[in-house]
Design a protein around this nucleic acid. Structure first.
Lengths: 148, 148
DNA sequence: CGTGCTTTGGTTGTGCACAACTTAGTTGCA
DNA sequence: TGCAACTAAGTTGTGCACAACCAAAGCACG
């Protein structure tokens, strides 16, 4: 089947094009796109464990551990083992990390404007993609279970 | 804005979920998803330059050069400077690369089945995403031009 | 002809992604 | 109680992505 006919390639290309558009905006904040996503989660509610971040962002510890270390080195977050359970690491915003929210406030609107799509279309697209991703995740789990 | 509300995250998560679903199928062929995409392009028409591959897949030489070297090491393609213009490298399928097409024929259908979506929905989604990606690319170009 | 510009592909360095494995801490239960 | 099973995070190794830079080949215009 021709490349142009495949949904999966369209998804792959659209995803990269989007992060490319974020790049110049996030560069000014000293952030990468995945780092920005971590901050979005923490700005919503501070003090998440690495596991919680992974569930929210669908990323595993192999990705998050070094990413969070870089963010800690940049002074955006702090990491601390919890008192109750020494296995768990809690990630908290520093003052600098909290303050970045104000500077990042214009980012989503700038992106929406760049898409040139109206709100209704974007909401539909988001919902379709979210359902799509969930279906893929479930299918992957079933496939992994069958393999056993 | 909450993470769940953003189209861009849905896109990012859906793209990773999709390649994750490809992974077990492509593992059996000894391929990664980007390598599979290169083969899709070559199966359609063999003997492309690195530049052409980059335009088709929207990847630059920094990504393609090492990727193609790995594919050459795996015996799937050959790379050769063209006689006319020594700057240009042409990529051609080997016999093994050509034969892989038969073994890969069931992959797209397996993915479509896993999505659980009907053809009409998938076609619409693909077209929306393709338009979306084009708009993003153009916006990124304009942004880069304005920067100058 | 020659010199500067452009084009093509490659290299280097950074930062994801993710599989496979490791380590330390916790829990269940015989 | 003792220990096997489990869990959370981290480490290692591989393979993209992409920016920034580089070298060689080709080209254009004086």
């Amino acid at each position: 089947m021709a490349l142009r006919r495949q949904v999966c390639f369209a998804l792959y290309a659209a995803s990269r094009a989007t992060t490319a558009l974020y790049r110049p905006l996030l560069d000014e904040l000293g952030l990468t796109y995945p780092q920005y996503l971590v901050l979005l989660v923490l700005w919503e509610r501070d003090g998440r464990t690495v596991k919680e971040l992974g569930e929210e962002l669908r990323l595993d510890s192999g990705t998050l551990s070094p990413l969070l270390k870089r963010m800690e080195a940049a002074g955006l977050v702090e990491r601390q083992r919890t008192a109750g359970d020494e296995r768990v690491v809690e990630v908290r915003l520093t003052a600098a990390g909290t303050e970045l929210q104000a500077r990042a406030r214009s980012v989503p609107a700038a992106l929406v404007a760049a898409t040139g799509l109206d709100r209704k279309t974007l909401v539909e697209l988001r919902d379709t993609l979210t359902t799509f991703a969930s279906t893929m995740d479930i299918a992957a789990q079933e496939l992994a279970a069958k393999k056993k």
